[in-house]
Structure formats: structure tokens, C-alpha cells
Amino acid sequence: MTAANPQRGYLLGLTAYIIWGLFPIYFKAIQAIPALEIIVHRALWSALFGAALLMVWKHPGWWRELRNNPKRLLVLAGCGLLIACNWLVYVWAVNNERMLEASLGYYINPLVNVLLGLLILGERLRRLQWLAVALAALGVAQQVWQVGSLPWVSLVLALTFGFYGLIRKQAPVAALPGLVVETWLLLPVALAWLALHPAAMSNQAEFWSSWQWLLLAAAGPITLVPLVCFNAAARHLPYTTLGFLQYIAPTLVMLQALLLFGEHFDPAKLMAFTCIWAGLAVYSLDIWLSLRKRKAA
């Protein structure tokens, strides 16, 4: 087993989260293509690139585990649908000037995970965790009150990713093979969509003579490379450290929205973000205190 190398872990972790945080630039580059068609190709190219990765990075026994536990395939199929939904809403949000809402969704995600642990797994929350969840709920509630509607983009992104993580635990397959199998299971749906939509941009001959098909094909490595980096980082860093690094991605999305793509903080969004950030600060404090207590024990 490779010895832990924190410096390498930080480098790999930062690489993963920075790539995830810069996704909007990529999706803006192909925004002429409808969001659903982008997701279809993301599944296709991720499946192909993932198959190539599995040939390079050996994961002994993963296929045997799935073959001997067919229920895990059903779990991965459900995970594939959840992650596809997450991808679709995210791409739609980026290409429809809703990046701040997307950013908010990924800020909310850790707190949604805490809430799912309470409601579904029966986990008990500590006082600071209750406070963190309450602050997040306050942020959503004030948005509803001021704007008159739920921040559905944020909630869908947070909930789909939260449930994805929750359900994914029921199929203990390594992250890379698991994601690749999820994309393989999406392949029939993706191919059927292309067959049923002959007018789709990528079904036109001229599309394949343009540079756009290369950008679409890049969806495979762009999806999987940060995951590989993240998995490698997890072998060198404590998971709690990776948990703190996760805020890099939504922060980069938020900064791009404000500085590059002309989105603005209205009072409702600013208040929502303030509540969520306060909740995350409390959540982070709770993690730190819990770790400190554990070390002292």
C-alpha cells in the first residue's frame, strides 16, 4: 500500500475541486447545444473514456462483485438516473444564467447530507448540527418569502447529489468502476434518445465536421479525471480535509457567475447565501470540535 503523502493529496484534491469548479466555462463553450443533448453525450463519452480508464487502472474483482450481487446493479442504475438528473439541472442552470443558484445548491449539499442522515438513517444530530441545518432552512425560507418561489435549482442539485451519495453507499463498489457502470447503464437511454431525435444537432453530418464534436467528446475525460484525482487524494488525506476542500468548487462557480458571466446578487440571494455560509461555518466548527474531542479521548 502506498504511504500517505499529504502534499500530493492536497495537490490532487485541489486539482479535482478546481476542475469541478471550472465546469461552467466548459458548458458555456457548448451552450449552443441543448442541455439534454449535452447530458446524452456526457453519458456516452464518459462510458467510453471510463472503459479505457478501467483498462489502465486495474480494480481487481469489481466486476465479479457486481455479477455475484445483481442488486448492486439496480442500485447503480438508480444512482445513474440521479446523477444524470443532477448533471442536467446543472448544465441547464449554467447555460440559463442560474449559476449562483447552482453554486448555492452545492454549498447546501453537506447540510442536506446531515439532514438525510437524520431522516433516513436515523442518525442523531448534535446541537451544532441542528443549528447548521436550521440556518440552511432559514436561507431557503427567506428566499421563498422574498422571491415567492423555491430555489428549485439549488434544491434539486443538493437533493439529487445527497440521495446519490446515500444510495451509492448501498453498492460498495470503488468510485471509478461504480461511475463507469452507472454511465454504461445510461447508454441504452442515451442511444435511444439519439435514435428518437434525428433532428438533434449531433445527428447532423455537418456537426461532426465542426470543432463542437471534440468539445462534446471532452465530456468524458472532464467528467472522470477529477474523480480519479479525488479518489487518489482520498488515499493521502483525511476525509474531513477533503470535506473542507469541497467548498472550493461552489466558490469558483459563484465567482465566475459574478465576475465573468454577469450574474448579480439580489438581496434575496445575498441573504440566502449568508444563511448558508453561516450554517456551513457552524457545521465546520462542529466537525473540528468533534475531531478535537476524539483525539483527546
Rank of each mutant, 00 (worst) to 15 (best):
L159F: 15
L191R: 12
L150G: 00
P172R: 02
Q170C: 01
P177K: 01
V180E: 14
L191I: 11
K169M: 07
F161Q: 13
S149M: 11
R168Y: 01
A174L: 04
Q170I: 01
L185Y: 01
A190L: 02
Y164S: 06
L176A: 07
K169G: 06
V181L: 12
A158D: 10
A190C: 10
L179Q: 10
L166G: 07
L155C: 10
T160L: 07
L187I: 14
P188C: 10
L179E: 07
Y164P: 03
S149A: 14
S149Y: 05
L157P: 13
L179W: 01
V180H: 10
P177E: 04
A158N: 11
G165D: 15
E182W: 08
A174C: 00
P188Y: 13
A158R: 11
L186D: 06
G178E: 05
G162V: 09
S149W: 02
A158C: 09
A174M: 01
P151Q: 01
F163T: 14
F163I: 15
P151E: 02
L159T: 10
P151I: 01
V156I: 15
P151L: 01
L155E: 10
G165T: 14
L176C: 05
T160G: 12
S154E: 07
P177R: 01
W184A: 03
V156L: 14
K169Y: 06
T183F: 11
A175Y: 09
F163W: 15
P172W: 03
L185S: 05
F161A: 12
G178V: 00
V180N: 08
L187M: 15
Y164T: 07
T160F: 10
Q170Y: 06
A175F: 12
G148I: 00
L150Y: 02
G178D: 06
G178M: 03
L187W: 08
L155I: 14
A171Q: 04
G178R: 00
L191M: 13
L150N: 00
K169F: 08
R168S: 04
A174S: 07
V153Y: 03
F161C: 14
A171T: 05
F163M: 15
L155M: 12
A158T: 11
L157Q: 09
T183L: 06
E182L: 13
V189W: 15
R168W: 02
L155R: 08
L179F: 08
V173P: 15
L186M: 15
L179H: 09
V181H: 03
L191K: 12
A174Y: 04
L186R: 10
A175Q: 12
Q170D: 00
L155S: 05
L176S: 09
Q170G: 04
W152K: 11
A175E: 07
P177D: 04
W184G: 04
A190K: 03
L150R: 00
V181C: 07
